[in-house]
Write a protein that binds this DNA or RNA. Structure first.
Lengths: 237, 237
DNA sequence: CCATATTTCGTACAGTGTACGAATGCGTAC
DNA sequence: GTACGCATTCGTACACTGTACGAAATATGG
């Protein structure tokens, strides 16, 4: 028996909007994985019907573009005036943290070629920090490609790990190593027994080492020649 | 009118096998993209019917695992006896080249948590080269995480670029920059006009810079302390 | 020949994105 | 009021996905 008054037929759910669709899509992806984010599941989460979403979004691809941009908007921007090194350090750590929270975003990056405003803003601010610090345009391009490659690649590896926290390493690693036949993969075995399976191991700790090494290298590159183009070292021989 | 003799009813197509299924899947993904790789399209390419594939493969996920492992098998292994630096350099360049050929593989890595034999072999050989060069276990872990993060991240960025070759940069970049409203993204504009749109620009060239910087840093790290654990630099202040 | 195992594949089902067009509600002008 | 026009909601339908189930065809061994 449907109520007839117009007042009650629009139930008191908050009205739909593009914003709300995207935020809810992000929440669903976080909660149940990107594979569980379907038009129908999203509509259910919003208490609507599937086809209603298409008034705010052209297609599913636009939703994916949108939530990737939302993820980017969570990353700390380097402050405009500060030194480049702590700025880049903070940004890198923040990006890694954000990408670990939304690990499905990494896999999406490969197929998304239309960056959103938050993504563009993020890139612009980062480039600006480097340029303001005296990096040449060339050197800025080098530094940016290097830093972002490292950040994304690290996040990708972290996402692909079969274990999530430091606690569950053994339960996952042990049975895999057991499967290796007698003499196979000796160095993987060593790495497992002498490093990964040691108490307190956490892959995430590796991030800092590489990040500092890269920032050191960049610092050296610009102090050498004021940010000019040549590669960081020409090895003799 | 079906032929009745058993001889002619089995047409002279080469017999199915797990190997053939995976190799064909790889070819389809390369030719038409990973999105076009479906059980039905794969069966068509193999001149069979969809359900026949399931005798050689448990499900589609196993196919994806399989072709990722095939991709890994294409990457040059560092030779066992050689110096670590040229070995790592060659491996990195080879990995990048392979991942550029099969750019869909990057996006797959995030969701694949069961590495195949070629993948394990690859990791083992790389670890072995570093250990043989005198890297400590800790330092090997650091170096490996760093190098692979850079390689995967670079490949991911390369895959996400809207343009493929050096030729098409302008056609893609120009209209995007045109869309920016008046004062927005000044540093992106600068990077576009003064670097990306310059003749001869190729993002792929950035790879070498970062790779050399990382290898320099690693070389310094092990010569400092014989591959001991501490980070590459402790900055004063 | 038959019996058994391996391999092929036809049919069916639940789930996907979304095109199309019909309903419904809402704001304004008469 | 009432009628129009627009924004919004959504029902139905279609082509396509992975794959469960079981039947058919073929190969193998006695």
């Amino acid at each position: 028996m449907p109520e007839k008054s117009s007042r009650s037929s629009r139930r008191e759910r908050t009205p739909l909007s593009r914003e709300r669709v995207l935020r809810c899509a992000l929440a669903v992806a976080d909660r149940e994985g990107i594979g569980a984010l379907t038009i129908r599941s999203l509509a259910r989460a919003l208490e609507t019907k599937p086809m209603s979403l298409y008034h705010y979004v052209a297609n599913k691809d636009e939703i994916l573009d949108g939530i990737v941009d939302l993820v980017f908007s969570e990353i700390d921007l380097p402050s405009a005036g500060g030194d480049w090194r702590p700025g880049m350090h903070r940004r890198a750590q923040s990006a890694r943290r954000v990408l670990r929270c939304h690990s499905w975003a990494i896999g999406l990056l490969e197929s998304r070629t239309t960056p959103g405003p938050a993504t563009l803003q993020h890139h612009d601010a980062t480039l600006g920090t480097l340029r303001a610090a005296g990096f040449s345009v060339q050197m800025t391009a080098h530094a940016y490609a290097l830093l972002d490659s490292y950040i994304y690649g690290f996040a990708l590896q972290e996402a692909a790990l079969p274990f999530k926290g430091p606690g569950t390493v053994a339960e996952v690693t042990e049975p895999i190593v057991q499967l290796f036949s007698a003499g196979d993969y000796p160095h993987l075995r060593e790495m497992a027994s002498e490093h990964v399976l040691q108490p307190g191991y956490d892959f995430g700790n590796e991030f800092e080492f590489g990040l500092d090494l890269i920032l050191d290298g960049l610092a050296a590159s610009i102090s050498d020649r004021g940010g000019a183009l040549p590669p960081p070292a020409s090895r003799p021989g």
